[in-house]
Simulated assay, not measured.
Amino acid sequence: MKKFHVSQQGIVFVLFVIMFAGFALFLRGFAQVDNLLTLLQNVAILGILGLGMSVVVIGRGIDISMIAALAVPSGLLLQLMQNGMSVPSACAVAIGLSLVFGLVNGWLIAYAEVPSLFTTLASGLFLAGCGQAFFFQLEVVQWPASLDALAWMGRGSFAGVPMPVVMFGLSAAALALFLKRMRAGAFIYAIGDNPFGARAAGLPTRPIMVLQYVMAALIGVFAGIVMAASVNSMPTRIYNSTMIYDVVLVVVLGGIGLSGGRGGVLNVIIGTLLIGTMLNGMTILDVSYSVQNIVKGVVLLVAILVDSIFNPRNEETAQQGDI
């Protein structure tokens, strides 16, 4: 008889089912179709950011700058369009900024060997400061009508599913294909599992580490465009919010090991569904924002403790990593 295997992913999925069923049975209005579609739409951006964070965490890093990567390049795109720049040029500037940002993060971490936690904390503050000081005329940049060619990414629906949810699904499928079918994806797992072993085996560890942060930055600006299209503006002060903790919560709670080399897209989806269900239930119950933060903090702490049990660091895994 095969030994029954308990995983963090399985536990989280069971908790999601129990929480969802409990809210559906005892919380009036939760199980309505409109509310469920709203739930999915509200967490779609969080899920997309979780995909970007998962690439970094699987490779044994962390990216605290993802909210700045969401807000500043996409806000700059809207600002440039308001200033009269053409769509291709404005998109090229925004994507170019994200690309440079990811390359700088990756180079500092991979080649200068600055810990990823401190690198991304500093770079996120720098990018946010640049946006506030030089890029934006107002804190909330409105969506210009000249950019409506991209508005479909965050507005309307496809087969009854809100477009932000569709974008999350397409992003998840693309990342799953990258991680499971492409050589670079396998290298990320190898580096996260044993960086010194991967380097000894001849894998291009430093370029792959740079690739991780470039991907995270590009996924960030994609999430920003989807978000701006859905709410018809980009509130650039979002980089001062607690959203980055929600992204970390999705990744860790979903079961992606902080020790690296484990997890995937399914973990992000499960984590997103659980967090979305929890936040939606607390909103319906009219739980205050401060209390919601307390609950999320406790859940994050429990998730980290559970991760330390299911993904313990041994002598090899403790040799490198910031988290």
Rank of each mutant, 00 (worst) to 15 (best):
A172L: 03
L179D: 04
M163A: 04
A228K: 04
G169A: 12
G224M: 08
G192Q: 02
P162H: 10
G220H: 07
A149F: 12
V250K: 02
P235H: 03
V268G: 00
W143E: 12
M215W: 08
A149W: 09
G257K: 03
F196M: 13
Y189D: 08
S259N: 14
P204F: 04
A145T: 12
I225H: 01
L147C: 01
W143K: 09
T205V: 15
M153D: 09
I191L: 07
M234D: 06
V166K: 04
V140N: 15
N232S: 15
R183L: 15
Y189H: 08
S241W: 04
P204C: 06
D246Q: 04
R237K: 11
V221I: 07
S233E: 10
L179T: 05
S157C: 10
G169E: 09
M163K: 00
A186L: 15
P207N: 05
A149S: 13
F168C: 09
L218V: 03
L258V: 10
V231E: 14
F196H: 12
M163G: 00
F168M: 12
S241E: 03
M227A: 15
M215Y: 13
V214R: 08
L170T: 10
M182I: 08
I219L: 09
V141K: 04
V268Q: 02
K180H: 14
T277P: 06
M153C: 11
A176V: 05
M209P: 03
G261V: 08
A200W: 10
L266C: 12
M163F: 04
A223S: 12
P204S: 06
L274D: 09
A172T: 05
V247T: 06
A186S: 15
R155V: 09
V247D: 01
T272H: 00
G261C: 11
G154P: 05
T272C: 00
G255I: 05
A229S: 12
A228T: 11
Q142M: 13
L249V: 00
G154D: 04
